[in-house]
Amino acid sequence: MYSIMLAEDDHIQREILKIMIHSIDNSIEIYEADSESSALGIIENQDINMFLIDIGLKESSGLDLAMDIRNTPKYEFSQIVFLTTHLDYILQAFKQIHCYDYILKPYNKNDVQAVLKKLISNEINCLGNGKDDSDKHEDKELVIKIRSSIYVVVKIEEIIFIEVKGRDCEVNTISGVYAYNNISLKKILELIDCKDIVQSHKAFAINKNYIFKIDKLDIRLFNVYFKNYSKNALIGYKFKNNIISEFENVGNYYVK
């Protein structure tokens, strides 16, 4: 069963949100907390899928509660959505907590449903399909600082390949290309920590799930083509055995 913890110190506001949440799916289990201490008591004893947290809790900051949640191993990648009357703390929330979204007060039903539906529906479908702990890497995300105070969140499973460009790494995904500034390929692979994304060249790492064709350019270099993607990557001789051997005998892949 999908569950949400609602950390909001105003009883009336909690009731309004509960009605809106149950209008999306009446089977959702809602746990209520009016303070950081009561919220921490709940998360210790329950398994929560999503956290809705009021940034302005009376006893303490909702950011402090969210940090405690993130520091709990089983909630490292859980969905956190902040409730707020203004946007002053939202940038801090994205940077420090890696929250998924925010909802402005006073609550608008359409806004609440738009934010929650995209998160709840996907998670419920995963639960219904028997998703277990072995699939958690599919939910992992990479937070990329693209400019000063501007960040994007990229799903690890949507990364096609990574290319070193000077001191930066260019992350090619199915939704766009993003430059991760001042990071090495080794470091970004450590952050991603995904068995499907492997180094293929001193300047490239590729997602094996997106490979369409591999061409031999010369004795030491191979060109990689990806499904439904126009840009190519390279495989160096040093790394070829970890990648090419998997595709040489598969009909959907082509190696010259």
Rank of each mutant, 00 (worst) to 15 (best):
T84L: 02
L189Y: 04
P106D: 05
N110I: 10
L104N: 08
F94K: 01
I150Y: 08
L83M: 05
L185K: 07
V177N: 14
D111F: 02
C169L: 14
S200T: 08
L142V: 05
C194M: 04
G166Y: 02
V171T: 04
I174C: 08
K186R: 14
N181H: 15
D135E: 14
K131Y: 13
V153Q: 13
N122C: 10
D111K: 13
I160P: 00
L185N: 03
S184Y: 04
K118D: 09
L91C: 05
N172D: 11
K187D: 15
E138T: 14
D139E: 13
P106M: 01
K187F: 06
K165R: 14
Y178V: 05
E170R: 15
T173Y: 05
V164I: 14
D139R: 07
Q92G: 07
I192H: 01
K118E: 11
N110W: 07
A93G: 15
I90T: 03
G166P: 02
V177D: 11
D196Q: 12
T173N: 03
I80H: 01
Q96D: 14
I162P: 01
V177W: 04
K155F: 08
C99H: 01
V81W: 00
L191G: 01
Q92N: 13
F82I: 02
L127T: 05
K118L: 04
V81I: 15
D88R: 07
I90C: 00
K136R: 11
D101W: 01
V115Y: 02
I159C: 07
S175Q: 11
L191S: 09
Q92W: 02
S175Y: 12
E141T: 15
N110R: 09
D88V: 08
I156G: 08
C169P: 02
D101V: 00
H98P: 01
D133M: 13
